[in-house]
Design a protein around this nucleic acid. Structure first.
Length: 105
DNA sequence: CTCTTGACGCCGG
DNA sequence: TCCGGCGCCAAGA
């Protein structure tokens, strides 16, 4: 699998994530079956601008570090399952409820 | 060829 | 919860 195919595979998965749900970098890498979480992150850093990047989160339920606050607004708008207080800037995602599986929509 | 770096992940302390 | 360390894979210096 060449670079372009890998990038497309990753973007395809990210675009297929329904509103209100999320996937972790690791989960995406696992589903694509190539590379690791860091590779997915690298793809997102370059081409993430054209996909719903806020639906891609860390395995521990935190949004990407690069998030400047836009993600939190999206979660509120889409009704993504969150945990804890939302006004403390530490928006965490309820992984158990929000994690989505590409294979079983 | 080696070393550093990164939108990561897991295990302690 | 926060912090640090180590593993991980690929790209760039």
């Amino acid at each position: 699998m060449d670079q372009e195919a890998y990038v497309e595979a990753v973007l395809r998965v990210v675009e297929s994530i329904p509103p209100g749900r999320v996937l972790s970098y690791g989960a995406i890498a696992e589903y694509v079956g190539q590379g690791g979480p860091r590779q997915v992150g690298a793809v997102m850093a370059t081409y993430g601008g054209s996909v719903p990047w806020w639906r891609v989160v860390r395995a521990d339920g935190r949004p990407p570090l690069c998030d400047t606050g836009e993600a939190r607004a999206e979660y509120l708008r889409e009704g993504t399952p969150l945990r804890g207080r939302l006004d403390d800037g530490l928006t965490r995602i309820d992984m158990a409820a929000a994690l989505w599986s590409p294979a079983s929509p």
